[in-house]
Amino acid sequence: MIGNVPFVVCMVLVLLGLWALLFRRNLVKIVIGVKIIENGVNLYLVATGYVRGGIVPIYTYAPPDAVMVLPTPQALTLTSIVIGLATTALMLAFVVVIHRHKKSLDGRKVTELSG
């Protein structure tokens, strides 16, 4: 009905995050880009599990004889969300420590390891 618009939008989010990773030098901005990619992927996962006209896959207070959406992607997305939080926390911890040493967040200024 709405075609593949949700899938396309998820890919747009992924590409948006990738754009931030490619062209933003600020470290926090890079983490934000990673978060956006992650949002896109999570949305993609949940979108694959949607069934038109389906309801929540929970039997408590459910109407009888209803079609249910696919539950597996939801479980996968839960895992993915918590993993995302873990990576975000660790990356921001690194950013904070880097800033403490270098007093800057610009990728070009904090880089020591090269060549």
Binding site: L18, L21, V31, V34, I37, V97, H101, T111
Partner: peptide, 21 residues
């Protein structure tokens, strides 16, 4: 205690996370 360790870790982390995604 040095700045190079966190820097390397941050780069590695970004790459790993993007690859994982």
């Amino acid at each position: 205690w040095a700045s190079r360790g966190p820097e390397a870790a941050f780069k590695t982390m970004v790459m790993y996370t993007v690859g994982g995604l």
